[in-house]
Nucleic acid binder design. Structure first.
Lengths: 137, 137
DNA sequence: ATAAAAACGATAATCATTACTATTTTTATC
DNA sequence: GATAAAAATAGTAATGATTATCGTTTTTAT
């Protein structure tokens, strides 16, 4: 149960993956649902959640927790990488800055147990929102 | 509405704060509720949530999102600091390692918008769980 | 004392997510 | 190709954390 060959073929899952692979905005399960519905009018939200959860458990896609009561976001790229959430428009994007220090490794050096990973989410204002702000007042 | 003087006195809130201030384990709202109930048998979970939310909004306590469907945890210390979640026993604790690089500042240098903060949660196994693991097999 | 504002307790509502179940699809085998 | 077990689906109910509502009680300024 560690790779995709353990799953039976499913048109719905293929459509979910196809939709997700074209997106850079890390959509929610509901957004995936509404879009895949165009091709599969009878698909259910539960099916979308089941497939997204399976795919992220298998390491085929990524799942991003947004904190609070915000819905999770899904990412065609399963590799650990950094994300940025804009306080202005709420957009979520990959954070394309150069390499940053590996906090988990640094923290592990001074920790009594063992630290194997960490998850970081960045907050601020995206380029667009900064532009709008300076345009006002 | 930016400090505690904007709130009216409340015995329930005092009890919630008193309970929380003695704890280093970052309890959930439900844990706070069950404990404060000893002194206020008629307190409701909604009151606990309302007070905890107010207090964290005012910067008097901290609120920690755990990801997934896990309930939030509350921290008597409102200052931004790092937390560690043990994959073994599920305990949440402050991460007392020396100072770590300021990722938000580093990332901001190479970002088109503005990054003002980031939240990091560390994962691994606590000292106790490591000891149990090596004791097995 | 008193009246407006805020907090309370009880409970209902919300929202994301998961679980359940009968039916349909996939896939390995004949 | 027939077929039967396993997995997936659609529809829907359930769960769990959190927030909202509302009539009552407490706080606080006058």
């Amino acid at each position: 149960m560690t790779d995709i060959s353990t799953l039976k073929k499913s048109k719905q899952r293929d459509a979910i993956l196809a939709f997700l692979s074209n997106r850079k905005d890390h959509p929610t399960a509901d957004t995936v649902y509404m879009n895949v519905k165009n091709d599969f009018p009878s698909i259910s939200l539960g099916t979308v959640y089941r497939n997204l959860t399976q795919l992220s458990d298998l390491g085929i896609i990524g799942r991003i927790n947004m904190g609070g009561t915000l819905p999770d976001r899904f990412d065609p790229n399963p590799e650990p990488h950094l994300h940025f959430l804009c306080r202005g428009c709420g957009c979520l994007s990959d954070l394309d800055v150069g390499p940053l220090p590996d906090l988990a490794a640094l923290a592990d050096e001074h920790f009594d147990g063992r630290i194997d990973s960490c998850v970081t989410l960045f907050y601020g204002y995206c380029e667009k929102c900064l532009a709008m702000e300076s345009g006002l007042s």
